[in-house]
């Protein structure tokens, strides 16, 4: 029950963005951020479920996992990691600008975040396209075989790896697409001048979400692209 809004003095008419069931903007702000944190807890368990399955099979089939990771374009994945980290910085700066009543700064930083987010999705689709062409999509379309026929027995397990690859990156990309959509909405509102030092909760909540999606990728990149070969033998 924060009295934050009242500390700033005189009697206002209710703020245009204060929803009817909240006492004041402070309460509304705290509710939105707590809501997003709670949602992110759900998200962690959601990704956690697949990651658990991923690890079970990674331990069961280390050679196939290493071979699967070898099929990934590490340069593209690495670039994407960098792009996302920078986008998190611009997102944080957007929140900062909103807190400082800097409308121009907020808009600029949101646009940059949007650009980086789109860039990530672009690079990701390039990778997806390459995988599709190589027959690395699980199911009926699968036609990839290891170059060394001696290890063709690993193929079904590599396919299992690719199920996790597509599942995890696909789930992550879905979050990115939703994030980009939300960014557009926040950007439009920032453009209109909705946000200022007393009311910037939507930008902050957007930021929380964006950082979360970023952090997920920080885990996915080593899990899917950088798997060392087990033991002394080179299997690929």
């Amino acid at each position: 029950m924060s009295d934050l809004a009242f500390e700033h003095g005189e009697e206002h008419p209710p703020h245009p963005f204060l929803q009817h069931h909240f006492e004041d903007l402070g309460q509304q702000h705290e509710a939105s951020t707590l809501g997003m944190w709670a949602f992110l807890c759900t998200e962690i368990l959601f990704f956690g479920g697949v990651l658990l399955a991923y690890w079970v099979y990674r331990i069961m089939y280390p050679a196939a996992w290493a071979l699967g990771a070898e099929q990934q374009n590490t340069l593209a994945g690495g670039t994407n990691t960098l792009v996302l980290i920078v986008s998190s910085l611009t997102m944080a700066l957007a929140v900062r600008s909103a807190q400082l009543n800097n409308r121009r700064g907020t808009v600029l930083m949101l646009i940059l975040t949007l650009i980086f987010g789109t860039m990530f999705l672009g690079i990701k689709s390039y990778e997806y396209h390459a995988h599709w062409m190589e027959g690395l999509f699980p199911g009926a379309h699968w036609h990839w075989q290891p170059k060394d026929p001696a290890i063709s027995a690993l193929t079904p397990k590599v396919q299992l790896f690719m199920v996790f690859y597509w599942g995890l990156t696909g789930l992550h990309a879905l979050h990115m697409v939703i994030g980009v959509g939300l960014l557009l909405y926040i950007l439009a509102r920032a453009w209109r001048g909705d946000f200022h030092a007393e009311y910037y909760a939507p930008v902050e909540v957007m930021g929380l979400y964006w950082h979360f999606v970023d952090i997920v990728w920080i885990f996915l990149f080593p899990f899917l692209y950088l798997i060392p070969h087990v033991g002394a033998h080179h299997v690929g």
Binding site: F46, G49, A53, P138, G139, Q159, L160, V163
Partner: peptide, 19 residues
């Protein structure tokens, strides 16, 4: 959410016939 993701994996297995 863990049920959600488990059911998704089940659906993927059923549709794509992966293991």
């Amino acid at each position: 959410p863990v049920l959600g993701i488990t059911l998704i994996m089940l659906m993927i297995e059923r549709v794509l016939h992966v293991g």
